[in-house]
């Protein structure tokens, strides 16, 4: 089963997709296997992070420090777009999460985040359940 999840982002914002992915897993009927979440955008990333308050803000700030939006990039669009391309190359654009007994195996302290490196934009992710074979 394959699904497209659409949502809006804020400039340099983070969207918690955990519950939407969890709902998709239930909808798909997947009991044991894994789910692939693919981000088709080149200035946004997807990843697992801590649910603790302040983590996403810290993460975005550290990425801004590592890859600041400047005019010195060769890719010339906007500085945020150029830095966004580099952040995506490093942080990544897809994620596989194990599903066990019908639920995401990510522990109680983690969430699935969509990191918007530019924005605000209308974004989407593609999700696919892959069933395990006994």
């Amino acid at each position: 089963m394959y699904k497209t999840i659409k949502f809006n982002t804020e400039f340099n914002g983070v969207v918690d997709l955990t519950e939407q992915i969890r709902s998709y897993v239930k909808e798909s009927g997947l009991e044991n296997g894994f789910v692939i979440i693919h981000d088709p955008h080149t200035t946004a990333s997807i990843g697992l992070g801590s649910k603790q308050e302040g983590f996403t803000e810290d993460f975005m700030l550290e990425l801004d420090k590592m890859f600041p939006a400047t005019n010195f990039y060769r890719h010339v669009e906007t500085p945020f777009d150029a830095a966004g391309h580099v952040k995506t190359a490093i942080v990544g654009a897809n994620l596989s999460v194990i599903v066990k007994d019908g639920d995401l195996l990510i522990g109680d302290d983690k969430a699935i985040y969509f990191y918007e490196w530019d924005g605000p934009r209308m974004r989407k992710v593609y999700v696919k359940a892959v069933k395990g074979v006994k």
């Binding site: 080149t42 590592m66 890859f67 990039y73 060769r74 890719h75 010339v76 150029a82 391309h85 580099v86 995506t88 190359a89 490093i90 990544g92 654009a93 897809n94």
Partner: peptide, 22 residues
């Protein structure tokens, strides 16, 4: 292995530059 824009060859160089800087 990454999933950047395939059209943005300058972006590939930007990534390489930033990796060397970091």
């Amino acid at each position: 292995l990454g999933l950047p824009s395939k059209y943005d060859k300058k972006g590939w160089l930007d990534t390489a530059d930033d990796m060397h800087r970091l």
